[in-house]
Simulated scan of single mutants.
Amino acid sequence: MVQKISTEESQTHPLHITDVVSYLQQQGWQAVNHPNPRLLVFQGDKDDAGDPIQLVLPSQNTFEDSDRLLKKAINLLATIEDKSPQEIIDIITQTPAKSN
């Protein structure tokens, strides 16, 4: 059974969008253009059906659905990488965003 991130974990370990984006880029995820500027969409490896896996993030932490989208992204990464959601959070929070 896949472990899901709890609300308490998300509040205890706030994630910054820039850190998650940096982690995704380091893992080879590619940014995909999306018509909604409030969303950041990334494409990864193919799923079992041969379709690219897409991960959706809010473009800012302050949107009403930011926490929900971040939890969904963490759960997806945990499943893909065969890690717990907490391991993914720990890795992301220890991966500083690259400054350009």
Rank of each mutant, 00 (worst) to 15 (best):
H34D: 15
L77M: 12
G50D: 04
E81P: 00
D48E: 14
H16F: 08
G28I: 09
Q94L: 01
L39P: 05
P14V: 03
I5Y: 00
D19R: 15
P35A: 10
I80M: 12
P52T: 06
Q11K: 15
D82P: 00
V41E: 03
L15Y: 11
T7I: 10
D48W: 04
L40G: 08
I88L: 08
F63H: 13
A49G: 08
T62W: 07
L57H: 05
Q86S: 08
F42K: 01
R68P: 00
L24Q: 03
Q94D: 07
L69F: 11
V32N: 09
V32F: 04
D19M: 14
P35I: 11
P37D: 09
L69N: 05
A31W: 00
D19L: 13
D19V: 10
L77E: 05
Q3F: 12
S99Q: 11
K46N: 13
E64V: 15
E87H: 07
V41D: 06
S59N: 09
T18D: 15
P85D: 11
V2K: 13
T12I: 01
N36R: 15
I80L: 15
K83W: 00
P58L: 05
D47T: 11
S22R: 03
N36C: 11
D82L: 07
K71H: 07
Q11V: 12
K83M: 06
P96Y: 01
G50T: 11
E8F: 11
Q43Y: 01
L55N: 03
F63T: 12
K72C: 11
I53H: 05
L15Q: 07
T12Y: 07
F63C: 02
H13P: 00
